[in-house]
Design a binder for these strands. Structure first.
Length: 205
DNA sequence: CGTCGGATAATCT
DNA sequence: GATTATCCGACGA
């Protein structure tokens, strides 16, 4: 499922408008067989959506300030999902840019405005992807395959043409402290929107 | 360019 | 009480 999601488009339609992101980087989490998965030790309040029907959004809050979104991808009862790690904004770029709020809000009046965010960085990383698309707890559990849903996933390629041929690479997942060698991170080879963060948290002390 | 510390709170043990 | 599927700004090369 995970590499198959590369090139697919996730779109969120809100009162502010529409933002769409073409997925360029994902990670697979296989629940009961994966020590790094939120569902490894069974169902909890947070991960319940992972145990539900496929095609739904599993959104979680982490590090006290960030949201990340997954696509549930196995039948009801089997908790497996794909984390959406990065993408390229294809629609609503100005809206996505407006949603990126600078971290320092309490600056003196003489301060210059913060530098503009490069377009390639708007959805580069799982929390930034959610920020560009305005995804938070409100979207947890939504059916991504329903035409009536505000948050929709559509297949790769467009009505104007087929899926462009691209190379997929695989490697270890990011930011986890167990199962660090399992190569379940997938990305489009050479794509500039793929996240380039340190492979593991340097919290050794 | 790379590396590092800090922010910040829900979730789980 | 510890950990966390992260990001940003500062600093040094």
């Amino acid at each position: 499922m995970a590499p198959a999601l590369l090139g697919c488009v996730l779109a969120h339609e809100t009162a502010d408008g529409l933002v769409a992101v073409e997925l360029t980087e994902v990670e697979a989490y296989t629940g009961a067989t994966d020590p790094a998965s939120h569902a490894y030790r069974g169902m909890t309040g947070r991960n319940a959506i992972m145990f539900g029907p496929p095609g739904h959004a599993y959104v979680y809050f982490t590090y006290g300030m960030h949201f990340c979104v997954n696509v549930v991808c196995m039948p009801e009862g089997i908790a497996r999902a794909v984390l959406l790690r990065a993408g390229r904004v294809t629609m609503g770029e100005s809206l996505a840019r407006r949603r990126r709020v600078p971290r320092r809000l309490a600056d003196g009046p003489a301060d210059r405005p913060p530098p503009a965010v490069p377009a390639r960085d708007l959805a580069r990383g799982p929390a930034r992807l959610c920020q560009a698309l305005a995804i938070d707890r409100t979207q947890n559990g939504l059916d991504l395959c329903s035409a009536a849903s505000e948050l929709r996933l559509r297949p790769a390629g467009t009505s104007a043409g087929p899926v462009p041929a691209r190379t997929v690479e695989a490697g270890p997942r990011v930011g986890i402290s167990v199962a660090v060698d399992v190569p379940w991170r997938f990305w489009l080879s050479g794509d500039p929107t793929v996240s380039a963060y340190r492979p593991a948290k340097s919290r050794a002390r």
